[in-house]
Amino acid sequence: MYEELLKNAFRPLDLDAERHVEFFNCWDEISYDRNTFITESGNIERYFYVVISGVQAIYLLSKNGDKKVIGFSFDGSFSGVYDSYLYETPSHYFLESLTPSRLIRMKKGDYDRLFELYPEFDRWGRIVHQQLLMGRVQREVELFTMTAKERYDVFMQRCPEALMKIPQKYLASYLNMTPETFSRLRAIKS
């Protein structure tokens, strides 16, 4: 089950249902309604997810409780609070389903075992961490060097269709602008 989804998510690994039996067997599916906390700040993240469908936001709270969105997950992407999952420490972040969501998930013990069972996962780990790091650096550069309008334009060029369906306040927070600014930029563009 989930063979195509996992093969796509774990590219460039060449996953094979016969050779990687344990890998394909360690996932189970879970569904969440809209606006459900999948992981809460203060709890330990127990799972690594791949999204079948739906949009989720990862955010932390400012001192007065405002949401600061740091990323999204959506169809086909990885999801979860990765640092809490890896280090088994309480999460600083919330992971929330913004739309009804179906995900498959893997426990930490199974994740660790993959690297022992299959040496090729080390290569996957190297590549995926490079991509994560480069993505975060790129985002930091955009936040520090671009105007709100430039950040909006760049984001809209690469924004997946799925994110167009979520409340604007989450996109505005991700782009570090007020919902009013986001709305004004959207109106100008349309």
Binding site: F37, E40, S41, G42, N43, Y59, L61, N64, G65, D66, K67, P90, F94, E96
Partner: peptide, 18 residues
């Protein structure tokens, strides 16, 4: 006061951990 549900959950979790 603006009551924010995620903030409440975070604070409840802090109490549970305490």
């Amino acid at each position: 006061v603006q009551i924010k549900s995620a903030f409440q959950v975070q604070r409840i979790n802090q109490l549970i951990n305490q």
